[in-house]
Simulated scan of single mutants.
Amino acid sequence: MIKIVFALFFVGCLGSSGQSVGQFYTTNSCTCDQLSYESDCTKMGPQCIWDGSSCSTQECNLITVASACAANLKCMWTTDPQGGSSCKTFTFCSQLTGATQVACLQVSANCPFTDGTKCGSSNQLHSCSHFTASQYCEGYISYDGICMWRDATGCSLASECAPLNLAECNSAKYGCKYSNNVCSQLLCSDYTTQQTCTFVMQTITKGEYQLCSWDSTAGKCSMAQNYGGLGQGNCYATTLGTARWVSTSAGGECLSCYAQTLFVFIIALFLIMI
């Protein structure tokens, strides 16, 4: 159970290719060069650099923070035979070592798989049904999402809130809520203040989110139909770095990035925790 509580923080690992109005997907994270404002560029951390007029990707060899290096899909954090560590241009996952999935993700967001020694890419991930023992199943990050173990049914995908216990439910932040001894889907209408009315996770196995909108007249939070309620100050942050503010003749608008950056959000969430 402890492993799945830990892993459910990473539920934004893979997202859908399409997007509906009012929704955003964490795999569509913005790249550095898509950000037009210094405030957004600096929020990306050391993997982006602002030169005074534009945002660009920092060269791997200039990144000195392991977390920023690992989160940059162009880079990987390596250790040389002498024990020194540095950020280098990414080549192959097989060049990296890690006994666990988390250990591999700590050196490259490209490499969520491990055979117990060497890291591997996402196409090497097992499905939940592959596992026949709880110690291998519980909390495993499969291509489809997080695996969970139940003695009666074996290893399966944690695809809904209902089967989750209290600890697991509380770990699926923005996706599930626990009330009256039952775990259920969190809805925009569950938020009771304007400050908390931001977004909800629609599917806990993938980084699919629904924006929420606050109705000041009614004093209620509901599903947002578009990005219209977001401005320059909160466009990037409220969409978890998947949209950016773009200047227009009318003043500007919040637009999706559609970068399709695999596993960036999963490593970002982990690095926030440590």
Rank of each mutant, 00 (worst) to 15 (best):
L8I: 04
F9V: 06
F9A: 12
F9H: 15
F10K: 14
F10P: 00
F10T: 13
V11P: 00
V11W: 00
G12P: 01
G12N: 10
C13W: 01
C13D: 03
L14V: 10
L14T: 05
G15H: 01
G15D: 08
G15F: 00
S16P: 00
S16F: 04
S16W: 01
S16V: 06
S17H: 05
G18E: 09
Q19R: 14
Q19L: 11
Q19E: 06
Q19F: 02
S20P: 00
S20D: 13
S20A: 15
S20I: 00
V21E: 11
V21F: 09
V21Q: 10
G22W: 00
G22K: 00
G22I: 00
G22V: 00
Q23W: 08
Q23T: 12
F24S: 04
F24M: 11
F24C: 11
Y25V: 12
Y25L: 06
T26L: 09
T26W: 00
T26A: 10
T27K: 08
T27D: 12
T27M: 07
N28I: 00
N28R: 02
N28S: 13
N28V: 01
C30A: 07
C30V: 06
T31I: 10
T31K: 15
T31Y: 13
C32K: 04
C32D: 02
C32N: 02
C32R: 02
D33G: 07
D33A: 14
D33P: 07
D33L: 11
Q34E: 14
Q34R: 09
Q34V: 01
L35E: 03
L35W: 04
L35C: 07
S36R: 13
S36E: 13
S36Q: 13
Y37K: 13
Y37I: 10
Y37L: 14
E38C: 05
S39K: 15
D40I: 00
D40A: 05
C41Q: 05
C41S: 09
C41A: 10
T42H: 09
T42L: 15
K43P: 01
M44Y: 02
G45P: 06
G45Y: 09
G45I: 07
G45T: 06
G45N: 09
P46I: 01
P46G: 06
Q47K: 15
C48V: 07
C48S: 09
C48E: 06
